[in-house]
Design a binder for these strands. Sequence first.
DNA 1: CGAGTGTATTAAGCTACTTAATACACTCAG
DNA 2: CTGAGTGTATTAAGTAGCTTAATACACTCG
Lengths: 123, 123
Amino acid sequence: MILLDYRDKRPIYEQIVEKLEKLIVSGGLSADEKMPSVRSLGMELSVNPNTIQRAYAQLEQEGYLYTVSGRGNFVAPESEWRDGIKQKVLQEWITATRNARLSGIPLEQLQNTLKDVYEEEKQ
Amino acid sequence: MILLDYRDKRPIYEQIVEKLEKLIVSGGLSADEKMPSVRSLGMELSVNPNTIQRAYAQLEQEGYLYTVSGRGNFVAPESEWRDGIKQKVLQEWITATRNARLSGIPLEQLQNTLKDVYEEEKQ
DNA sequence: CGAGTGTATTAAGCTACTTAATACACTCAG
DNA sequence: CTGAGTGTATTAAGTAGCTTAATACACTCG
């Protein structure tokens, strides 16, 4: 389902959250699809179930998952997280743009790169 | 000189590095200007001199500072860090742009916001 | 009923960050 | 030359966060 990067120095649960976020946002997981249980994903990634639980809890808090007692965790419908992710990503993009401007990168270069990125092949 | 943000959960030395980077890149500190000593900046920020030393060492490693033995740390000339910061900032901007595209933010919105950011008043 | 869910708790170990206390070589003003 | 002020290195200790491990319990469903 996902693969951990051992060079990444962030906490494991944060890495899991980020990778699952991207998987959900990109459509790799559909609404109401059942997530692996904390125990099975823990086995798969060689990580303690508690750590998986911590990642799932954060994903639920952010609206990406919902829990059905005794049944498992499921992917939340897009309406639950669409606005949040857009606002978050846009804010980070604006910050990155301000930094670019501060570093002396010309507007024209960003305009060209922006078009290039939007023309990249889908993965 | 700088102010620490106690809500920021990153290590103190990283926060200091980031704030001094921005201060140098934005022109708030001139080339060959003398930096505060590790002891005095430690006093000013209520932080151990070792922590300041760690931040200074990283800034030197990144080309923002140079050290004169027995005299102190000084701001490096722009040629030492200009290429590095541009490449780093541009790479982060491209990543943010890919995330924006992945989240469904339309190209036109970014194009408009891009112009807006470059028209913001200088601080 | 029993296996499989989420969830909670407690204890322990580990790592990174930070502080503290020294120590030493260097530079420069007096 | 001397001493104050530099950077730098070392060692020890404390703290906080992350992770694992071992249980336990309520829930759902075949």
